[in-house]
Design a binder for these strands. Structure first.
Length: 324
DNA sequence: CCTATTTGACCAAG
DNA sequence: CTTGGTCAAATAGG
């Protein structure tokens, strides 16, 4: 219908290069995490070095992400509110469900909730609406993750973040349920990053992880809250969860596995740019520590505004900042 | 006591 | 209607 994905050759090439760099950076990141001390032993504190490396790599990755994001958006100015298409997972899905296309204002019905549940307190739905409206705009990308036979599960490749599971659903045509995770600091720092993990039907060792949005929280910083327990730094990365079948255990492994970026095949002449790169800065919260990683070129302060629609705001000024 | 997970129900969109 | 995504009460675990 609409040829919105028309990119010039220059842009394609640029995108390709950026993606390559992005991919490489991520791989490097994973590598650094796996092998913190590659060469001979150093007398310097390994932790500090590792941390510095991590920060550096993080900056690189972030840079790539932003570049990709900018390029993608600037290249298709006509496409503003259209949700980003995602790489179609190669799952053996007979009745493939197409991702929701660009449906503009499909529901005239105003948001009114009687809350079917017996419990009251339905005003929190507002957040849900606000969230659901934006959620389509959130950058979305997926990765294929394969569990490593040995261990290596400790390697939180991309997942330095702490996730909290908030749901699990059986997907039609999929043998295994899909798990939904959100950032642990969602309520505290308004970090709307989420991810879903779907175990592949075919390969029991492959999980498809789809991320939505990027972290705006500052959980990477080792900061302990002044209140409550000062030292409660524990990793909730892997939960044993030996509640039932071994399959659950396998599922729990999904959180930490070898990340393998896909859709970024460098040999494809067709070059199908699968999805939108990450990074999405919702601006700083007035919180005590509004420390957001990476310098925010754009700062949307409209993250919380029930009545105002931010749609046009943020692509517009973004566009401006491109020519900055 | 706290926080994280589980799990059925709810909701929006196709 | 179905289906994917989310919420929230109940539960598990420290």
């Amino acid at each position: 219908m609409e040829g919105r994905d028309m990119l010039s050759w220059e842009q394609k090439t640029l995108l390709s290069e950026l993606i390559n760099g992005f991919d490489a950076a991520k791989k490097l990141q994973a590598r650094l995490r796996e092998a913190p001390s590659p060469s001979s032993s150093f007398s310097s504190p390994a932790t500090a070095v590792a941390e510095t490396n991590e920060i550096l790599v993080k900056q690189i990755v972030s840079s790539y992400e932003r570049s990709l994001l900018l390029l993608n958006w600037s290249s298709s100015p006509s496409v503003q509110l259209i949700p980003t298409p995602v790489t179609v997972v190669p799952v053996a899905n007979p009745g493939s469900v197409p991702e929701s296309p660009a449906s503009i204002n499909g529901s005239p019905r105003s948001e009114e909730f009687a809350d079917g549940g017996g419990s009251s307190e339905s005003h929190h739905r507002q957040d849900y609406i606000f969230n659901s409206k934006k959620r389509k705009m959130l950058p979305k990308w997926s990765e294929k993750v394969r569990i490593s036979p040995e261990r290596g599960l400790e390697g939180p490749q991309d997942d330095v973040f702490s996730w909290r599971k908030y749901g699990q659903k059986d997907i039609l045509g999929a043998k295994f349920p899909r798990s939904y995770y959100r950032c642990t600091h969602r309520s505290t720092q308004n970090c709307w990053a989420t991810k879903q993990v779907q175990r592949s039907d075919g390969d029991a060792t492959v999980f498809e992880v789809t991320y939505r949005g990027t972290h705006t929280c500052s959980q990477a910083i080792t900061r302990t809250p002044p209140l409550a327990s000062p030292e409660k730094r524990q990793d909730t990365r892997v939960k044993p969860a030996i509640t039932q079948k071994p399959k659950d255990i396998l599922e729990s492994l999904k959180s930490n596995l070898t990340v393998r970026t896909d859709g970024l095949d460098d040999g494809k002449d067709v070059f199908s740019f699968p999805d939108t790169p990450p990074f999405y800065n919702y601006g700083t919260i007035n919180g005590e520590f509004g420390h957001v990683e990476s310098s925010p070129i754009f700062d949307v302060v409209d993250w919380f505004n029930p009545t105002v629609e931010i749609d046009t705001t943020f692509p517009a000024f973004l566009h401006e900042s491109i020519y900055y």
